[in-house]
Design a protein around this nucleic acid. Structure first.
Lengths: 361, 361
DNA sequence: CTGTTAGCGCATTCAA
DNA sequence: TTGAATGCGCTAACAG
């Protein structure tokens, strides 16, 4: 809009494109760099009131900001934490991120957020980059193979904590959902409501520990409860849906349709159990395409994760305490950075069942 | 799970917690630091094949990674770009972020992502922090007042580009949606489909340029089209909904309900026009609470932004080319960093109308 | 082609 | 209480 000229407020020096350094401040205050440094680091006890005032004034006048890079270089710690996220489009990641930010905030770290966008190359590249920026620790929600992270991090002595999923060869601190309990929560809810044909829908899960655990727990509980709950002959099957593979996705959905149709024919009550939000969304979209706006009447749906739109679509979910997960991850990391060398720990948070219309058919 | 001991692969030195430096590499390769530096910076022409090989070997052996901090300190540029996002829970932000990442990737920058989480203090703090880390430029999707950013950035000579919203006193490059055209697209669609009572629902918009522009355009087009399109007597009103103010939100929604009820009584066809996705979600949730699953039959809804769940809920939207917006922002910034000192520019991208059930009632 | 020298901005000995 | 000197890891003049 405006193309006018406007220069800063306060002490306008024009716009010299060079920030003041500690030396500038020292000169301006008529003292040595050491005192400035002391002031910056809060060693106020060792400064005469007069000098201190002069320093404050000088800093103000020059709008001085200490260079974190130089600082980090000298002290060997730069207060940077790497946060590697597999997929920011997944609300889960964003929520974990919020917890991480809160904790970083409280503990004096700056999170360096890296988004792998489901690309394994990205993941590897970012891990290298983080090494290069000498982050003091990394929080990893990985997609990839072990070697991709073992090498750069462990070999550099950079502590890591895993979120939601473990990495094969590596034993590091780990924090996430109590998958077994969550799966059980879902299964029990479905059984209580009379569903007897349960289909667990999950992305390819061999590589991702949380998916593996959820699937295993789903099967264990669905089959182990045979005859209990007053429900006889419960069917429990697992369906793989690869969201990033356009080729296979249609076939997989078609198979699912067949399953649903068959259940209807048999008079069975079929319920879909989505392993996470992205799967749930894909399923809901598909069901809507098949059955129209009233799809809820044709197939029940429950999901782990509780994205905002779940309430709108009326989908029963198992919510994860995502903020806490992120927060705890930073706490773990912080302890390791501070040198506490305990055995590797794991924190598994419980999920919370939120009942909505999609399982009350 | 496992608490076993596992040490790295390759050349296992145990786990000395100190990374190799350029000096280490020089010693290992039996040469001076300069040659290493040259190798790192791709000045391969100035290295004998022999030396070059020795360097490569040494780097390999030590698993050496140049320290970006030290590098940046020396050269005065660290390849860091600040990205300040008002709200990552808004899918818009995530999508812009993806564009930013892609561009950073291509241009050799590392984005330093900061999330203000709708808190104005956060915004200010992060802006200071970015200054402190000496980022070479910032991309800002701001919520705050002008002074909060004018001071740290402009005074530090750090170029900035604004996304989606301008900042009052500041004239910087700017990229976002063509708000006027987008609003027009929506209004025309509604009029074509016979809606004659249009309500624009928007968060408090005095402070945010994009909201202001959308609202203004909405009014201009809705009223300017009087009598055209075969529609007579179109009503166009604006409704403010403060999503972050629990106190006022209920009252605002109640007023909206009254408006809708009144329209029904008059036999008018009422349509809600949400200024962005968060507003749309809130509206949809409310309508669902009021009218049940069949809310679509009671009130039409259209929104700017096209989040994933819009398809599921069947909501007509105007999609922004978010990736492009993010990408272009980085390009603008890059040019400024490279010293091109043109007049400030603005890029306004067109939106795309996506018709769904919510406006076909 | 290669190595030596001198800082980048800062924190930290060590003296004064 | 204060300041001068040293070096973090790296790049950029300069010489050889």
């Amino acid at each position: 809009m405006s193309t006018g000229s406007s220069t800063g407020s306060g002490a306008g020096e024009g716009a010299l494109p060079r920030r003041a350094t500690i030396s500038d401040v020292a000169r301006e205050a008529g003292t040595g760099k050491t005192s400035i440094s002391r002031y910056l680091n809060g060693e106020l006890a060792a400064l005469s009131p007069d000098l201190r005032a002069r320093i404050e004034a000088a800093i103000q006048r020059l709008d001085y900001r200490p260079n974190q890079m130089a600082r980090g270089l000298k002290r060997g710690r730069n207060r940077l934490l790497g946060l590697l996220l597999a997929d920011l489009a997944n609300p889960y990641s964003v929520e974990v991120l919020q917890g991480v930010e809160a904790a970083c905030h409280a503990l004096g770290y700056m999170p360096l957020i890296c988004h792998a966008a489901n690309e394994i190359d990205m993941e590897r590249r970012y891990l290298q980059l983080l090494t290069t920026y000498r982050v003091e620790g990394v929080i990893v929600n990985a997609l990839g193979v072990p070697e991709s992270m073992l090498k750069p991090m462990a070999s550099g002595g950079i502590p890591a904590v895993l979120v939601d999923r473990t990495v094969d060869g590596l034993d590091a601190d780990m924090v996430g959902l109590d998958n077994a309990a969550a799966a059980r929560l879902g299964v029990e809810h479905l059984l209580e409501h009379g569903y007897d044909d349960l289909v667990f829908v999950v992305q390819p899960f061999e590589q991702v520990s949380s998916r593996r655990e959820r699937e295993a727990a789903f099967r264990a509980f669905a089959q182990g409860t045979q005859g209990a709950q007053g429900v006889q002959n419960v069917r429990a099957t697992t369906h793989v849906l690869d969201l990033h593979e356009d080729a296979s996705i249609d076939a997989s959905l078609a198979a699912l349709d067949a399953h649903i149709a068959d259940a209807a024919r048999r008079g069975a009550r079929c319920a879909l159990f989505a392993a996470n939000a992205p799967v749930a969304l894909r399923l809901a979209l598909h069901l809507k395409a098949c059955f129209g706006a009233q799809w809820q009447q044709h197939a029940a749906l429950i999901a782990i994760d509780d994205p905002e739109w779940a309430a709108l679509a009326g989908i029963t979910t198992i919510r994860q305490p995502t903020r806490e997960i992120g927060y705890r991850a930073v706490e773990f990391l912080h302890e390791r950075i501070e040198g506490v060398a305990l055995a590797t720990r794991a924190a598994a948070f419980p999920g919370e069942l939120i009942v909505r219309a999609s399982t009350l058919g």
